[in-house]
Design a protein around this nucleic acid. Sequence first.
DNA 1: GCATGATCATGC
DNA 2: GCATGATCATGC
Length: 453
Amino acid sequence: MTDTELPYNIHDANSVVEYAFELIGKTLREAANVDEIADPKRRKGSLGNAIEYYYFHMDPNSRSAPDFEEVGIELKVTPRKLTKKGERVAKERLVISMINYMDVVNEEFETSSLMHKADDMLLIFYLYDKDKDPLDYDIEIVARWGIPDEDLPIIKKDWETVVNKVRAGLAHELSGSDTLYLEACTKSSNSSVRREQPFSDIPAKPRAWAFKASYMTNVAAGLDEGMQSIERKQGEEEASLFDLVRERFAPYFGQTEQELAETFGYAREGKRPPKNLCALITKKILGVTEDAKIAEFEKAGIQTKTLRLQKNGRPKEAVSFPYFDYCELVETPFEESDLHEQLSTRFMFVLFRESEEEPGVYRLADIAFWQMPDADLEEAQACYEEMQRRVRDGHAEDSVKSSENRCCHVRPHGRNAQDTNMTPYGVPVIKKCFWLNQAYLKDEIEKITQNRS
DNA sequence: GCATGATCATGC
DNA sequence: GCATGATCATGC
């Protein structure tokens, strides 16, 4: 199968991840329409190899790391099992890569070969069941994962403990019990194999970097927890996410912000409703508790934004994104930029419309799912690259105006005028971000709502 | 009424 | 204390 025939775009990380998400809640038999794992060689490593071959259509003969080389993502398929108490735990450690004793002593943790791999992984957890054919294992979690910041100090320490032992000529004395999360686990086809080490003549067992099973148990629990799915009632099993969400919202169409605040218990004596009202009621309406994330939105990478449409259909405000770093902007091509990533994901707009009779009063009117068309992504790219030029030329203060680009513009986005960021030419300039133009949003919203019956 | 600079409010 | 979604303020 050539690149263009693949059911996902191998050059687009979002596409790879979105395609992978479709595995959640399924078995490989269901997801890839496979009857049996034909090649007995592929039975070993069972599900992981089969997913690569039958679902991602990777050629097992031309395997090179990382698995999704084009986007730098490493695929890891790993089992959980049920304990006697019925709790899910990692069945085994997650092996990342072999340790080369001769090279590792010259590495730094931050730029190590381990970090290169463990930095950006596509983790797939399935539920192991000794009585099942691997094709029928339940695939429970799919997540793009990197070592979380809060775990980095311990993992770095673990890495250094191992590497320092090799530097001391003690590779033959390495043990999994030396470390907490990350370990150097033995890995070889038979127990007599030995490798050379740089600072001792004693041959050492081959070992690989691996996250311990206990650590993986917690990683999986963390990915599971804090996520709630939208409950589907009878007859809704097959509904699209959009239909499901709109169905839930529909009873509240027509309510003002104040009324919604009261309906959901967010009204505050003598004060405006909270600014994050939209986020709060979205969760309430979809039946997800306040502290949880909406699983479907997280998995599909949907960003929720409020749009207050004035009587003329124009949003009262433009839509902002996080501020950008001037130095990063200059160095990063559009395809690899945060802006590209943000504009490549789907949005759910919660639409409020200004009441005809009561100026300034906005009522919940509709929801709309939107993704920027490719042609407009090119327009956004022009905005991005023009801003890059200006910063390179020493004019970061000179924003790309909304009059200069059909889709996007640049504007300040700090806490105040003193909230600045360093430019490549050494002068601090107020923090700025990219915004979606109001006129552009008006057109896009009209396209969506007019296409509806 | 719009463009753009500036700031608020909340959550982590 | 900062990042971020949301909103305000000013001038043309």
